[in-house]
């Protein structure tokens, strides 16, 4: 009896991921048939088993894009981009979606090559590179302390470590910056957290917002592309 119970548990353990795997081809088939909302619900279910899979976010973004919800599409592409910034498809779809809302992935004035270089590694990869350089510098410090040798190599690796640390800091700051995207056709920006404050602007779906603060059902946001600061209802935006 006990054996049977354990075998059942083991089978269940295998069956659950198998079921989750099966939903993805099914979702793709639904997407191909144009049954987007059903495909979307399957991808969102799959996300529970693949919480850090950039390609699941990418596919969710595609579903939203095809359903006309460009704001939600942009939010999911952005999540995928954070996890896998080198993927050309993610970059393309995110750029296209942001462009439809009047936003740019590469900030104005920044060369495309520099932007691509800055996002050539994901944050865990960049952290790994930082660690590796740190360990190398430590080893060379020890060598120099014990043997008084390898001074130039130590200087070069130390300089690389400083540069990498700066890069890592900038990426971490950017990744930790709370962003949101307008998810409804239009969001109103008000001068305070309430409908009793006058609306100063309306902003279309797909615009990127930087969240500065929050109060009840409202976010204080900055629209960098428009140099605008104000409050929007939480229900009108999707936090990335």
């Amino acid at each position: 009896m006990r054996h049977g119970f354990f075998i059942f548990l083991i089978l269940l353990g295998y069956a659950v991921p198998c079921f989750a795997q099966d939903t993805l081809p099914q979702a793709e088939e639904l997407y191909r048939q144009g049954r987007l909302s059903m495909a979307l619900s399957l991808y969102e279910k799959a996300l529970k088993n693949h919480p850090n899979d950039p390609f699941v976010y990418y596919n969710i973004g595609n579903c939203y894009f095809k359903m006309g919800s460009k704001g939600l599409a942009a939010a999911n592409y952005y999540r995928a981009f954070k996890l896998n910034p080198r993927d050309p498809d993610i970059r393309h779809n995110l750029s296209l979606t942001l462009a439809s809302g009047g936003e740019r992935l590469v900030p104005t004035g920044v060369p495309e090559v520099l932007h691509r270089a800055f996002f050539s590694l994901s944050l865990p990869e960049l952290t790994g590179l930082l660690f590796a350089l740190f360990w190398l510098v430590c080893l060379y410090v020890c060598l120099w302390l014990l043997k008084r040798r390898g001074r130039w190599v130590l200087l070069i690796t130390g300089s690389l470590l400083v540069i990498c640390a700066g890069w890592w800091y900038a990426r971490t700051e950017q990744d930790n910056q709370p962003l949101a995207v307008v998810a409804t056709p239009v969001a109103e920006i008000r001068s305070g957290p309430g409908t009793n404050f006058p609306a100063s602007a309306s902003i279309a779906q797909g615009h990127l917002l930087t969240i500065e603060d929050e109060k009840d059902d409202w976010y204080e946001v900055i629209v960098k592309s428009q140099s605008l600061k104000g409050w929007v209802e939480k229900s009108t935006v999707e936090k990335i």
Binding site: H50, D53, F55, V56, Y58, N62, F65, D89, H92, N93
Partner: peptide
């Protein structure tokens, strides 16, 4: 937009 990703992770 480009097509779905069919391989994951």
């Amino acid at each position: 937009v480009r097509y779905l990703k069919t391989s994951y992770a």
